[in-house]
Design a protein around this nucleic acid. Structure first.
Lengths: 223, 223
DNA sequence: ATCGAAATTTATGTATGCATTAAAAAATGC
DNA sequence: GCATTTTTTAATGCATACATAAATTTCGAT
């Protein structure tokens, strides 16, 4: 299979930093210099720098000229931008997938993710719910196949993920959202492209509205 | 204004390489090692490397383990991916712009780009036509305002640009395409969101079909 | 001539060194 | 005290050094 290459330090730095950012352990606004990060990760500045360039390209950090790296905040306006794009992209992708009339087997990853969401919801496990939600959307993209689309959407998810973690606790339980996922899956199974698109679009628009409402309401200065 | 910082070598390397790739002076499939590029650009490997990482993130080159950099080809499948995304994004963006009922003045950049296309078409200046077309789409995005959307679409344009240059010569004159731009602009002026979306979507779908037809027909092994 | 092993070359990943210059701190004058 | 200048500190951009390992060539044996 894919020749196992020994992981490089750059990859390590990239993965670790990205994970810490995604999970808010390196919170928005966090700032540090290259040497500081290098020491923390136990390597020289070179691989750290290269990892940071990648993270910057993905929109997770900003490399300020003399102040080092800053983890970018995700504020209401950012989420507006992100959801605007997702609302345009995902329903289309789902519709094209529905048109392909996939087998139950092909759709299994979506079925599993949906069930996991329902299960997590029933148990009030919000973190797990968010993860399952993520899996659903990623699996859908993978099935759809457009690699560039996957990259674009994934990058946006990674940016939005942090805000979602925080707002998760400030909203009602995601009952509605879970039902919508089930409905999307149902329409994918039926191969109903137009209805899939409609339901998905509505899902995104409702979710965006809800999330933005919370962000505006609580006015996170630096989220 | 934005404090003029002396351009760094990384920026220089990035800009030069990107331009050479965009214009096919570094054609798809071109391959070189880091030291080779460094010598060509008159700098050490370090800034070259950092520029290459950026270009890789943008999907223009591939950093193969031991073979150095390779300029990525843009084949039919790639264009299919790119146009699928653009078809989902741009019509939506245009529609949201139309809904804002912009003034003639605001729309001036689009007017100028459209006129330039018509002029270039009349004079059979295809290179200029492509550039004006590019300006139209970029101006529209800028007006629309979503920064992330701009980045995503711009990156896709940069990838597609090279294929467009080549196929330009193998197709009929872009009469139809030019008219469609005029129609899009017209609907933006009228503030007709739904019709703007429809016309734009049709524009994208027709353009994609045409371009893919040419790519499939001529079967560019390595474009 | 053909194959395989050993030697050589060289691209990469990473560390380190260093000049430049921004920022912070200290010192000076009012 | 407060503002201003000087000094010090230290972060970055870039060059260079170097170990490792892949690729290539050389060489020898059959």
């Amino acid at each position: 299979m894919g020749q196992r290459v020994r992981p490089t330090r750059v990859e390590d730095a990239y993965a670790r930093l990205k994970d810490e950012i995604r999970t808010n352990r390196l919170p928005p606004g966090f700032q540090a210099t290259e040497p500081e990060i290098a020491i923390r990760l136990g390597m020289s500045r070179t691989p750290v720098r290269e990892a940071l360039i990648r993270l910057e390209a993905e929109g997770l950090v900003e490399l300020a000229p003399r102040r080092g790296v800053r983890v970018l905040p995700v504020q209401a306006d950012d989420m507006r931008e992100i959801y605007e794009i997702l609302t345009a992209l995902e329903p289309d992708a789902a519709a094209s997938l529905a048109a392909r009339n996939l087998s139950q087997e092909d759709l299994a990853p979506l079925e599993m993710a949906t069930s996991a969401m329902e299960y997590a919801l029933a148990n009030g496990n919000l973190d797990e719910w968010v993860e399952a939600d993520d899996r659903f959307h990623r699996a859908l993209l993978e099935l759809q196949g457009n690699r560039r689309l996957q990259n674009v959407v994934t990058a946006l998810y990674d940016q939005a993920h942090r805000a979602r973690i925080v707002t998760m606790r400030l909203r009602e339980t995601p009952q509605k959202s879970t039902e919508e996922h089930r409905a999307i899956l149902h329409n994918l199974q039926l191969g109903n492209a137009e209805e899939t698109r409609r339901v998905f679009r509505q899902h995104r628009e409702r979710a965006a509205k809800e999330l933005l409402g919370i962000l505006d309401k609580y006015k996170f200065g630096q989220l």
